[in-house]
Design a binder for these strands. Structure first.
Lengths: 204, 204
DNA sequence: AAATATACTGAACACGTGTTCAGTTTTGAG
DNA sequence: CTCAAAACTGAACACGTGTTCAGTATATTT
């Protein structure tokens, strides 16, 4: 049989694992299945990845890296464009990689991914906060606690991903935009020039 | 050994299972562990619940029922009070039953709970939509598509639960309220009397 | 061609799981 | 007390898992 060499095999294993984890989740993805799909034997997997967790962890790391690379350039855009781009990125990602994202939610408390997750969360919140700050400087957004607001926004976005995964927003871009229209309701809270920028109805 | 009778045993099993599922998740909760904690033998579990999934499903059903019973009375309150009460209910629940909720997120796509989940989601969204409608009638909220907005609100609340589970909002009520202050930003989008009620910045 | 390094194999191991069921113990009515 | 119904037991079964490692095949160097 032909050989792929160290680098080639690593790649095959990762690809096979990504597909399988997405299709059947962490627990139901066995090393054996990964081996079969990668066209390698069980032992070979362990030549490249010490154990199942390590393999999964590597996959997760790459996924987060890819997503960050996708959203990072938004920093340069105009605040409103950046924000809408961010929302689109999140929803697109949830649509295109639904299975994988669903799996990540499932395995949300795997000990091994906590540090990766924390770093990712922090960087995303930082990005949002930066967008907000820029918006305030440019007098597009009203004054606010950017870090706290970014945090809330971030988790609302994650909530919308859950919605997408539940199939509540429909699959096509059209349906998604339709469903998101009410979120201008959300944005209006950010837009300046429609009210004063005092403390607002903090105590409801 | 003393016996508990049919009803008593059922209860013991459910309690033990609830604790264990919360502590260790679905996969790592074994029937054996449930049996030990319930003070019964493995076989007895199967006398009352056909299999592991059925046991979990029953638990999940009760949990949703309990939560619904908690939020349903809010329907009678004033819209603003109802909305704030809803937010509190969600966060309180996430704090007090963190482990269990975390587990539910983890097992979010177990086939067996999909119908239960759908019914629960629908009823919660209906509740929110009703609150919004009442608010509009009472001229507290601006005009809007209540069903769509309710959907968005619901998923944002779920996102906040994720935040709570990630430990981002802190554990104490104080910390939670602090963290939620930026959400008046969210509410301001709902409040009338600060702008016209046109279509808004739909296209960003 | 021989020797060494690299890439790969897959049977075997130890363990843990959900589930079953023949058998035992307790209960309570007649 | 008698005895059937109800409650309960836990060893055994079949299966699937992550992981290991002695051994084999290919590539590269000498």
């Amino acid at each position: 049989m032909k050989r792929r060499g160290s680098a080639g095999s690593r790649k095959c294993i990762l690809e096979a694992a990504e597909q399988l984890f997405a299709e059947t989740g962490y627990a139901d993805t066995t090393i054996r299945k990964v081996a079969v799909r990668a066209g390698l034997s069980v032992g070979t997997i362990y030549l490249y990845y010490g154990n199942k967790e390590e393999l999964y962890s590597e996959l997760f790391r790459r996924q987060l890296e890819g997503f960050s690379a996708m959203t990072e350039p938004l920093r340069e855009k105009e605040p409103l464009v950046a924000l809408s781009g961010l929302i689109d990125s999140y929803l697109d990602y949830a649509v295109k990689r639904a299975k994988l994202v669903s799996m990540q939610m499932k395995e949300h408390d795997l000990e091994i991914k906590k540090p990766l997750k924390k770093a990712f969360f922090d960087s995303q919140k930082k990005l949002i906060a930066d967008i907000l700050e820029k918006g305030i400087r440019k007098k597009v957004f009203r004054k606010m606690d950017c870090r706290a607001t970014a945090s809330v926004l971030f988790y609302c976005l994650r909530g919308m991903i859950l919605a997408q995964l539940s199939g509540d927003l429909g699959d096509d871009a059209q349906g998604r935009l339709e469903a998101w229209k009410p979120c201008d309701l959300f944005l209006r809270g950010l837009l300046r020039d429609r009210r004063g920028h005092g403390e607002g109805c903090t105590k409801l």
